[in-house]
């Protein structure tokens, strides 16, 4: 059964000049369509990857799925409920938020530099009211740190005391702290070194198995995507140009853009 369904998602940005300038120059309104009628669905416990180059609209889709951005048209359904429904109650909205979390691209900007790691991890626990007592919260933080391969001692440290890969682990722990069903991974390894990238990708896979998580994995890197995804959607200029399972996509891509992307990936075999 489809866990997340995106239906004819469209998002436009208004790039028009201010009203007064338009009046004086008689320019028309300018609209940029970042996401253009994109539909896809993700099964529970699987990874769906959106691949595209810069400006393809992949990050905009990620923001719409987590609810940071409202779609101009179309809708997202999660576990049978509409995410971008204006009419749902505050409590229901908060319940939805708990179930969909995100891991961000930058290991530097995604953690508040003034907060100790323990506090960063406790914030979602408190916001969703998951554990009431301080002792339980501390226990949960230690458990989370352990799950992402850090030690309980790290709870008192600040983000600058960690390497890029370790920060990304903290970011993953934060996403896990609300016990979500879905994690949106927005280029989670593109700022990391290769050997660390492999660690983080493996961690994501392990966690997926352990907690039967559903991933929406956003990336520009087809090679990375091929190691992660059950299903891949290729985005070009806001449109979903092809969608297939990896074996089919890499063996016989149908869209010329997909073909070009695959050919452009540097490959060890092509020396």
């Amino acid at each position: 059964m489809s866990f997340i369904i995106a239906n004819h998602l469209t998002r436009q940005y208004d790039l028009s000049d201010p009203w007064i300038v338009r009046m004086l120059t008689s320019n028309k309104r300018k609209q940029l369509t970042a996401v253009d009628d994109v539909s896809f669905s993700i099964d529970k416990g699987t990874t769906y990857a959106l691949v595209g180059e810069s400006g393809s609209g992949k990050s905009t889709i990620a923001k719409m799925v987590v609810g940071l951005l409202a779609p101009s048209a179309g809708a997202i359904t999660f576990d049978g409920k509409m995410i971008n429904d204006e009419t749902i109650s505050k409590a229901d909205r908060q319940r939805l938020r708990r179930r969909i979390q995100m891991v961000f691209q930058s290991p530097y900007a995604s953690l508040n530099p003034r907060w100790a790691v323990g506090d960063i991890l406790k914030e979602p626990i408190r916001a969703f009211g998951l554990f009431d007592s301080r002792a339980d919260q501390d226990k949960r933080v230690n458990e989370l740190l352990d799950q992402v391969g850090l030690s309980a001692r790290d709870a008192n440290k600040y983000p600058h005391e960690f390497s890029g890969g370790q920060r990304q682990r903290i970011s993953i722990a934060r996403a896990l702290s609300s016990q979500p069903d879905v994690i949106i991974c927005d280029e989670p390894t593109s700022a990391l070194d290769v050997s660390v990238q492999a660690q983080v990708l493996n961690l994501l896979k392990t966690l997926q198995k352990e907690f039967s998580l559903t991933y929406l994995f956003i990336s520009h890197d087809l090679a990375v995507v091929s190691t992660m995804a059950n299903k891949i959607g290729v985005l070009n200029e806001g449109k979903l140009v092809e969608e297939a399972v990896p074996s089919q996509l890499f063996a016989k891509p149908e869209n010329p853009y997909t073909k070009m992307l695959i050919d452009a990936v540097p490959d060890f075999g092509k020396v």
């Binding site: 987590v66 609810g67 940071l68 909205r93 908060q94 938020r97 708990r98 969909i100 979390q101 995100m102 961000f104 691209q105 930058s106 900007a109 995604s110 953690l111 508040n112 914030e123 979602p124 916001a127 969703f128 934060r174 609300s178």
Partner: peptide, 13 residues
């Protein structure tokens, strides 16, 4: 614009 603010929005602050 930094992502830690987005993370805070995600938990409904």
């Amino acid at each position: 614009e930094k992502e830690y603010v987005a993370a805070a929005q995600l938990i409904g602050l």
